[in-house]
Computed example of a mutant assay.
Amino acid sequence: MADLPATEFRRDRLTWTAYAMLSWFAYLQAAPGLVIAHLRTELDLSYSAGGLHVAAFAAGSMVAGAISARLERALGRRTLFWAAAALLGAGTIGLTAGRAVELTACSVLVMGVGGGLLLATIQAALADHHGERRAVALAEANVAASVAYLVLIGTLSLTAALHAGWRAALLASLAIPALAWWTNRRLAIDAPPPSRTAQGRLPGAFWIAAVMLSCMTAAEWCITGWGATYVEEAAHVSTDTAVALMAGYFGGVVAGRLLGSRLARRHDPAPLLALALAVATAGFAVLWPSTGPAQALIGLSLLGIGLGNLFPLGMSVAVGLAPGRAVLASGRVVGMTSFAVLLAPLTVGTLADATSLTAALWVVPVFLALAAVALGVVHRTRP
């Protein structure tokens, strides 16, 4: 099928507002994993308790996924959009104000619910607003979200240099939704008339692809959630330096997604997935034995390039296995991958308490190997 003319995709006020708000969501979604090291020191937390904060965000997102459609019907998309942003902001304030693990974990749970509702609303708004060019809008939004990770690293490094602390980096981000609401409070964010979601059985190959995506997501969030803590201990650097080194990982994610989106226009996603898995495995092989910041940075960068491509390419493969049921397939994938985000950081934290973080992170190549096996099965069963 020929590509639509590029001139048919137009970024208007709604598009830019959605991009800005999705970037803010991504900024705060990555924050729990990067501030775990600070929270563990301040609150004297175990690895398991630290992992609970990353898992709490995922749990909240799972709740949001279950209720978003009903809330949209009850409140309307525009009201839900801004209410979700307010909930995410309230959770962020609670996280920065909390001085006990019960309060900080519950605040991250609230962040997850608000963030999940905001994400679902943004994706639906972009898809409906741009119609046949929705793929372009969602791809650009995905890159914008990746850039937000780098902005988070930079802001955390800046607040550390100014001795303002990590809380200032999170609270400063609240200016984005406040400004977005003030300048766009009358912007129409309307949903189309409700339609019946496609139903029916999804093919067996799809479920294998969904398991593959879950393994990929688990590997990604093991690094997102515990990368900074691992580098701090393995490379013997300060917490602030370890967080700064995570710029290599998130920079790799941005670079990998930009490159992957270009290659995906000319190549089938399955071999690109295999290549991304290989790059991610190579990155782990460099990171795991690192004893200094330079080697850790190289390993994190390679991991970012490889892991950053897994979800977009894997989603393309999975949905392609369910023609005519894209909405149903996407919903099932989101549910399974959210569960992976919930489970992976907790698994690493529990194993680290029983052994060490170095040993616990061996689940990453295990997840990558399982994903590679599933990819091979999917490739053989594809029509």
Rank of each mutant, 00 (worst) to 15 (best):
M1R: 13
L4C: 02
E8V: 07
F9W: 13
D12G: 13
T15A: 15
W16T: 05
A20I: 05
A20H: 02
S23Q: 04
W24Y: 09
L28E: 03
A31S: 15
V35H: 03
I36Y: 02
I36S: 12
A37V: 15
H38T: 03
E42D: 15
L52C: 03
H53S: 14
A56C: 09
S61C: 10
A66Q: 14
S68H: 12
L71E: 04
A74R: 15
G76S: 07
R77T: 04
T79G: 04
L80Y: 01
A83S: 13
A84D: 10
A86Y: 05
L87A: 14
G89Q: 07
A90R: 01
G91L: 05
L95G: 02
G98N: 05
A100K: 03
A100G: 07
V101T: 06
G115C: 09
D128Y: 06
E132N: 09
V136H: 08
V136F: 01
L138N: 00
A144I: 14
L156W: 06
S157D: 08
T159M: 14
A161Y: 04
H163A: 15
S173P: 08
S173N: 07
L174C: 08
P177C: 13
A180G: 03
N184V: 06
R185G: 05
R196S: 12
A198D: 12
R201F: 05
L202W: 12
L202H: 10
P203C: 11
G204K: 09
A209H: 10
V211P: 00
V211F: 14
S214A: 15
A218N: 08
A218C: 06
W221C: 00
W226T: 03
A228I: 06
V237M: 11
A242E: 01
A244N: 06
A244P: 02
M246N: 06
M246L: 15
F250L: 08
F250M: 13
G252D: 06
P269N: 11
A270Y: 02
A270S: 14
A270V: 14
A274Q: 11
L275R: 14
W288Y: 12
S290A: 15
G292C: 08
I298C: 08
L303F: 07
L303P: 03
L307G: 06
N309G: 08
L310T: 08
F311C: 10
P312Q: 08
L328W: 03
S330V: 05
G331R: 01
G335K: 00
A340K: 01
V341Y: 00
L343Y: 04
P345V: 02
L346W: 04
T350Y: 13
D353H: 07
L357N: 04
T358H: 15
V363A: 12
V366M: 12
V366F: 13
A369W: 06
A372T: 12
V373H: 02
G376E: 08
R382W: 04
R382D: 02
